[in-house]
Nucleic acid binder design. Sequence first.
DNA 1: GTCTATAAATAGATAGAC
DNA 2: GTCTATCTATTTATAGAC
Lengths: 179, 179
Amino acid sequence: MAWDNEHKEKTRQRIVASAAKLFTQFGFDNIGINEIMADAGLTRGAFYAHFNTKSDLYAESIVAGAIMAAAQHIKEASVQDIVSGYLTKEHVAGTGQHCPLAFLTTDISQRDSQVRQAYTTVFNGLIKRLQKDGLHRSQAIKQAVLMIGGVAISRALDDNDLVEELLFACQQTEALDIL
Amino acid sequence: MAWDNEHKEKTRQRIVASAAKLFTQFGFDNIGINEIMADAGLTRGAFYAHFNTKSDLYAESIVAGAIMAAAQHIKEASVQDIVSGYLTKEHVAGTGQHCPLAFLTTDISQRDSQVRQAYTTVFNGLIKRLQKDGLHRSQAIKQAVLMIGGVAISRALDDNDLVEELLFACQQTEALDIL
DNA sequence: GTCTATAAATAGATAGAC
DNA sequence: GTCTATCTATTTATAGAC
């Protein structure tokens, strides 16, 4: 019984990891349960032994995806390192982990309360992290908007030069200069 | 013949206006051709006399939607007025025209090149408009990211107090103080 | 718990009458 | 040019075998 539970939990985590990867990359509507389960090495039918709806998995994958992305971007030493590491072409492109805050911004506003609560929790976490390094709260909020907005907009643009210019501009913050 | 063409063009404009309204509010995947045509007072079948694909209409509605939203937000006198008028709870909520730049940000990155080119064009227009009032180019870019990102993130958040705090913070820009 | 098979609903696109 | 009817494909979710 203990083994079964452990095995089920591991399978569940694998599904969530696949979901976080695929949802952030393609959005809620452009990925089916089928593809998520296939990525986790399972078939569609097994999904409902772990989750009730696609939306449930989405909410959970936002939190999980943020944790995975944070391991890559947020744990750096200084605020400037966090900002610079976040606003890169590699983050904008498909490589590595993607931050749900930036990759799913407008996608989230179409979903139910549960999903938007998950987004709010993750966003508050980023603000707190930025404040920890001495930024005033309003400065931290603005910097978070520049990070998230900068990456989100870059992904929509169809002009490489403009993207590079934008990413660079969003890294230059008056608030950081006076620290 | 002249009357026919004029009539067809008016119908087409009505479809685009309905599309701009509904797409910005609900995103590409959550609105069907059916609903757009119904909003324009027509049925689904008539769609293909005006457009080839749903994606074609989407690209066109982004440009049209930006023009309509600009009439509401961008034509104000000063940069500070533009920024303040854009970063409001009314803009974030469903009332009035919605700016595609902020309402469809991550939605756009899932679409084809034609759509992303339309987004890029509109974004460049905003930058130009902000530069016209004396902002340096990098300042204009950052301010645009704060506007678009601020509204986009606000729509995803599930916390009214936080939204108000965020909108206010994004209006306070060092670059504007020194003008 | 996972599989295959299938139900049920939705939506993009086409055909043909008017 | 617009309509109704239909084709075709996709997808969420369920049923039942193993």
